[in-house]
Simulated assay, not measured.
Amino acid sequence: MADLLTHVLVAYALGTVASWRLEWLSKRWIAVAMVGAVLPDLNRIGLFVADPAVEGILGAPFAIDALQTLGGIIVLAGLGALAFDRRWMRAYGLLLAGGLSHLLLDAVKRYADGHAGTWLFPVTWYRHPTPNLYVSSDPAVLLVAASVAFAVWAVDRRWADDHEPA
Results as ranks from 00 to 15, higher is better:
residue 157 R to Q: 13
residue 117 G to F: 08
residue 87 R to T: 12
residue 81 A to C: 11
residue 69 T to R: 01
residue 88 W to Q: 08
residue 62 F to A: 07
residue 94 L to P: 04
residue 157 R to P: 10
residue 9 L to V: 01
residue 155 V to S: 13
residue 55 E to H: 07
residue 132 N to L: 10
residue 66 A to F: 14
residue 69 T to F: 03
residue 156 D to I: 01
residue 29 W to Q: 03
residue 90 R to M: 10
residue 90 R to E: 11
residue 87 R to E: 12
residue 135 V to I: 13
residue 54 V to C: 10
residue 77 A to I: 02
residue 2 A to M: 05
residue 100 L to Q: 04
residue 127 R to C: 10
residue 60 A to D: 09
residue 144 V to M: 04
residue 27 K to T: 15
residue 43 N to Y: 15
residue 14 L to K: 00
residue 109 K to A: 03
residue 11 A to K: 01
residue 62 F to P: 04
residue 27 K to L: 13
residue 85 D to P: 06
residue 35 V to P: 08
residue 13 A to Y: 02
residue 1 M to K: 04
residue 9 L to G: 01
residue 5 L to P: 00
residue 36 G to I: 02
residue 39 L to Y: 04
residue 121 F to H: 14
residue 72 G to S: 09
residue 87 R to N: 12
residue 105 L to C: 06
residue 112 A to C: 05
residue 6 T to Y: 01
residue 115 H to W: 09
residue 64 I to W: 09
residue 63 A to N: 12
residue 133 L to F: 14
residue 48 F to R: 14
residue 122 P to E: 06
residue 23 E to C: 09
residue 156 D to C: 06
residue 109 K to S: 07
residue 1 M to S: 02
residue 103 L to K: 03
residue 125 W to S: 08
residue 126 Y to M: 11
residue 30 I to F: 08
residue 111 Y to H: 14
residue 5 L to F: 01
residue 10 V to G: 00
